[in-house]
Simulated assay, not measured.
Amino acid sequence: MSYQQIERMTPVAAPARVGQGTAVEQSRAVAEVQAAVLVARQFPRDEAVAIAKMRTACAQQELAQRAFFRFPRGTSNVSGETIQLAKELARCWGNIQFGVAELRRDEEYGESEMQAWAWDMESNERSSTTFIVPHARWANGRAQKLADFRDVYENNANNGARRLREMIFTVLPVWYIEQAKSACTKTLANGTGDVPRSQRIADCVAAFDGIGITADQIETKLGRPSAKWTDIDLGQLQVIYQSIQRGEVTADEEFPAPRVTVDEITNAAPGDSAGWPTTAQPGSGAEQ
């Protein structure tokens, strides 16, 4: 083990003197936590009310459209629930505190130590995780160091949001989360409710056409013509569209260009060769 590695593992000594402002803030934080726990015990959540709030929230298109994400990983896409859905479920469930904190930033080694946590103050169930975020972004097959302070902040915020989502879901009941996911999926499938499916299909095609994706590409992806698209298909397309808009996945990754097969090249018309010019053969009379 090198001297630098040992130095990094050595804990930093606490300051010998704590300022008055720091001491006041520490006392205030302790009192705030004690008060929050006391209120949570005095006014426990009503699960029926919490479920009703969740269903009302998940019935809104604005939340349902931001409830799921998609991004590429290797040869497949990863999908799941967003931090926006997690925060809304925590709000509806009640008596939950959560947050993300940057504990230390090391410019020399290019990394930040961060912590994400969620705490159900009523059941006293707490989940937290401490993690290291390198000041780098993976691009073009390699890690590129971030030099701009804004890029570092956004990189830390994105990594922190993903950990925070998992911490919130850890303290929420599984059945509660699954009901919310089903409600959001149903909302996406039903659309606004008063708009006929044919109009929703037309609006969907127009929206994708605005980002350079044709109806033929969508039909190829779904494996059926637009006239036979179901409510589930429209919901899936809405998630894909929102993910493209947020930059989680690119249009080319979701709708790759069709590849020319060997059979198509073999069956091409003589002299055409799938659009490539014919090579003149010696003695054929063609210009050399």
Score class of each variant (00 low, 15 high):
Q4V: 08
M9Y: 07
T10S: 12
V12A: 04
A16W: 01
V18K: 00
V18E: 00
A31Q: 06
A35H: 13
A36G: 03
V37L: 11
E47L: 10
A48F: 06
V49D: 04
M54L: 03
L63F: 07
A64N: 02
A67L: 08
G74E: 00
T82K: 01
R91A: 03
Q97G: 14
D106N: 15
Y109M: 00
G110F: 00
W119V: 02
D120F: 02
E122G: 12
E125S: 07
W138I: 02
N140M: 07
D148G: 07
F149A: 13
E154T: 06
N158M: 06
N159M: 03
A161K: 13
R163T: 01
F169R: 09
Y176Q: 04
A180H: 04
K181F: 09
K181M: 12
S182Q: 02
C184K: 11
T185G: 03
T185K: 12
A189P: 11
D194R: 11
Q199N: 06
I201A: 13
A202V: 03
C204G: 06
F208H: 07
D216T: 02
E219V: 00
P225T: 09
A227W: 07
V239W: 11
Q242I: 13
R246N: 09
E248W: 15
V249K: 04
P256N: 10
R259Y: 05
E264I: 09
I265L: 13
A268I: 04
G275M: 14
Q281Y: 05
P282E: 10
A286F: 06
